[in-house]
Amino acid sequence: MQTDPECLTIPFQSLEITRDDIALGMGYADGALPMPFSAQMDTLLAQAERHVRIRAGFRVLPPSSVRIAAAGFFIEDTYFETNRIIARPLRKAETLAFFVATAGQGITAWSKDLFESDDLVQAYLVDALGSEIAERAAERIQKEIAERAETEGCRITNRYSPGYCNWSVAEQHKLFAFLPDNFCSITLTPSALMQPTKSVSGVIGVGANVQKLDYECKICLETHCYRHNIRHM
């Protein structure tokens, strides 16, 4: 299986994000976001559509260009040093898909405007919403890849991103080198950070014998990671 780079635009409403989804990311138990934050979140969710431009894209690489190693993988002659935590679930992959997803620049600007007008809580809520949108958009593109893979008798792994599971964020430069310039309107800073800020990139394994775990953090023993202590600071 292989595809050319493809970028999709995703309507905000189709992500079906609720205030409880965002509250969980902030640390609250389900349904426990107190007033007035819950009402503020509902208002922000109603306004979100005009501040976001959600795009997500992927490229499934030619299988002949992919080689999985013990602690990383090669695409052509480029070695991605993911470490064993990520290389292990990818080892049975026949090929790899690189993906990106973004909530767009507008949501960061919205949060910044609120922060500068001293509305700190709403700025934080918008920031948390932006993170949730980027993750949901990545989920959506993962589902798209899974559906394409299924038509060819393949399955997919979980998605893995530079910056997590001890995979250096600097490797994002290598990943973006295999995607078109400005793919889905996402660029990298010299220190390998994505612009817009609320963006996600990564890799997904594709093959007949790979599997997707219900809970991706199961593969990683990195107890320092904020996803184990989620507060979105």
Binding site: Y28, P34, F37, Y124, R231
Partner: peptide
């Protein structure tokens, strides 16, 4: 103690 989260802390800081 995870009894409150960032929004409450922001309100206090404000």
């Amino acid at each position: 103690r995870n009894e409150v989260f960032v929004p409450e802390l922001l309100m206090a800081a404000r």
